[in-house]
Design a binder for these strands. Structure first.
Lengths: 404, 404
DNA sequence: CTATTTCGTCATGGCGGTTTACAAATTAGT
DNA sequence: ACTAATTTGTAAACCGCCATGACGAAATAG
């Protein structure tokens, strides 16, 4: 029963459980966890009215969750006051117990963190240094060391790892383990499952997808329908529809970088012509700006743009324009509530946004789709990965209780 | 309790019912209906093993459904044989009881049909004649007459109408009643709910969406992730993701017609430039082919192309090319399993497909997304509409039993 | 200080699926 | 043809889960 933990993929609170009393119980446990997790400290009565069960039923559910160590009672010193009447006893998600381990394989860094059920980052390591062209085995070996380190640190705080989620800058197969293509790393058809320790349930996904999930779960007022655009060499988008990540048949959805912007434009590695990547991809922008590819390419662009370098600014303006054209297509197709720029794009937003927005507005009848910048910037994918494990626990607390 | 009947919109078998024993019962009733409906005559034991309940539980569910008239026992003359052992008694969806009424407001016709729970069309009327520029009131009045006629015919066969679903060639608001914009008809912000008889639960939706649903529900081997493209003056797409229709925030998803194909192309009514509609829309194609707009425009194009008219063929080839560019973007974004051409496009497919396919293949790395033609052609939206009502009954049989 | 309100829990009950057992209906094998 | 094996459908007893209603506990309002 470790399968339901891979929740960043199948997704949806407790779906697919059989419609029997046991399944009902499990779903109700999940609903209690989600409610308490989302709405802060809450009394049993408040939970009951929110999920539509009686106080008595919620009491038994809460008892079970407290026994499992997933929920805790804050104690009589910190009651939940409502007005007149006896104050409720405050329930909160436990700060001990299971933790989600998130990891990120970036082009220029590795990062690992541990997040508890409350959403707090409890341990964190970042190692800088380029991974371009390094073969998977040594990179993953190093990543494994970092994971073990973070897990050890988390365990010292009374946490135990419930799963590992890895964000990679590339396409991931539908199995949630295999990196099909990561151009920045030059990885192809690499099964991370066989390289990582098998102790933890594993999920691998695109960084744009995890970034989108971070936005969905952690962003304040984030809608249930939006596009999260993120870029390094390639440009990827995490598409969230009705609160769920859109993956597509093979798991390749969100390949914004190869949306045609000018059908007769320059040839692209994908076989097409005039793909967005040819105008707004990292290499294209650096070339247009007259810069040499170096270590921290995004930082370099941002620095030069800040200094007022006209070539760089023009290059970014043009990239924003191309992004605007591609996003117009996406917005027409998906009708999202907003578009969020995350990952590397977040740092370049000041110079991309004006042309992007005007292009989008000019091509749209009625009010244009609002474009914002992610609050998490480059941290999004890592946080999203760790939280995906946490969400899996919230989605089926009974499965975790069995293992603890 | 008429709300859950509008199932083409919220969709998803019995979701959102409370996780209480009553909700469980209702969901299990729905699962029995869906199973029997999908897998033909089935014994109680077969249903039980398919949905994961015990034979005893299924027996009580089936009893209830038979009492409600939604299921029927075929009788001892037509048993379900399995091999050794006692043969099962065959269960089938009832051919009487509730029926779905589907209606279509086309540019050149009105159509209404009644479909029983088995999916059979039991009554049908089509009235030819242009509706371009006619104001909503008289058109809907005429449609209402046709609906009453079909309902009367269905009732003579022992059916009763469970709901009415109307397909329109335009954008429909999120409420499922109001036509926001239908350029072919020149309707704007028209609330069909106030014009149609209030006796029946009503759903209004875009014809491309209903066409996509027909494909999803009735097509053989149709995947759960695909794009259904359909066109009259505008070009719309029904986007199906994981077996559910993608609607977007305002319900405007699938506006393929305004995806930019050439960012510097001719201006479009939407405010943009070079939208797909400027290359593959009906007017653009007619102009490129050197034809005058007349009554049956699609038929005219098809006829001329069949005759070998080079201008028409070239125009259609170019339109296919533009469609290919726009679809490349959509395919990259959504990673669907296939693309289906329906509605008016189905009739022009022989001349559109070659250039469309080669454009799509040339712009895609790896195997290109397969493009096929709808089996239903122009009938798709009408069938999808009627079936959406039927699906609503299957999704919550208990709600219907209360009304019968 | 009392009346009122709200919280959490307990006992009871209804409902729904499971378990177990059994009769009915058919095939396979002798 | 007759028996053994197999499968179906149903009935009775059981268990689990939530609802109902009542109660004591703990606060506020007057």
């Amino acid at each position: 029963m470790t399968a339901p933990l891979h929740e960043a993929r199948p997704a949806g609170p407790g779906r697919a459980l059989p419609d029997t009393q046991q399944g009902m119980r499990r779903r109700n446990l999940a609903r209690v966890m989600h409610t308490v997790s989302a709405a802060g400290p809450l009394s049993r009565a408040a939970v009951a009215s929110r999920i539509g069960l009686t106080r008595a039923a919620v009491s038994t559910l809460v008892d079970e969750l407290i026994r499992s160590g997933l929920l805790e009672e804050l104690g009589p010193e910190r009651p939940v006051r409502v007005g007149r009447g006896r104050p409720g006893s405050a329930l909160a998600v436990s700060g001990r117990g299971p933790a989600g381990i998130g990891a990120e394989v970036g082009v220029d860094h590795l990062a690992v963190c541990a997040v508890d059920l409350r959403g707090q980052v409890r341990a964190r390591i970042v190692r800088h240094g380029s991974n371009r062209g390094r073969s998977p085995a040594p990179v993953v070996k190093e990543l494994t060391r970092l994971v073990r380190h973070v897990v050890a640190e988390a365990e010292r705080e009374g946490l135990w790892p419930a799963g590992l989620a890895v964000a990679v800058p590339g396409l991931v197969a539908g199995d949630g383990r295999t990196v099909v293509r990561a151009p920045n790393l030059d990885w192809h058809d690499t099964d991370l499952g066989s390289l990582l320790p098998a102790e933890l349930p594993l999920t691998v996904d695109n960084e744009a997808n995890f970034g989108a999930l971070a936005e969905l779960w952690l962003g304040e007022g984030t809608p249930r329908d939006f596009l999260h655009v993120s870029a390094e060499i390639g440009i990827g988008a995490g598409v969230v529809v009705d609160g769920r990540l859109l993956r597509g048949k093979r798991g390749f959805a969100g390949e914004l970088g190869h949306v045609p912007v000018r059908p007769d434009g320059p040839a692209c590695a994908c076989g097409g012509r005039g793909c967005l990547e040819q105008y707004a991809g990292e290499e294209a922008v650096l070339r247009a700006a007259g810069l040499e590819p170096g270590e921290d390419r995004v930082g370099l662009l941002a620095a030069r743009a800040t200094e007022g370098d006209e070539d760089v600014r023009r290059a970014l303006r043009d990239a924003g324009e191309a992004l605007g054209v591609a996003l117009t297509g996406a917005v027409n197709l998906l009708d999202p509530e907003s578009v969020v720029l995350g990952g590397a794009l977040a740092g370049l937003a000041p110079w991309l946004l004006p042309s992007l927005r005007s292009e989008l507005a000019g091509r749209t009848a009625g009010p244009a789709c609002p474009v914002s910048v992610s609050r998490f910037g480059p941290e999004g994918p890592l946080l999203g990965a760790a939280h995906s494990v946490v969400r899996a626990v919230l989605d089926d607390p009974a499965a975790v209780a069995e293992r603890s």
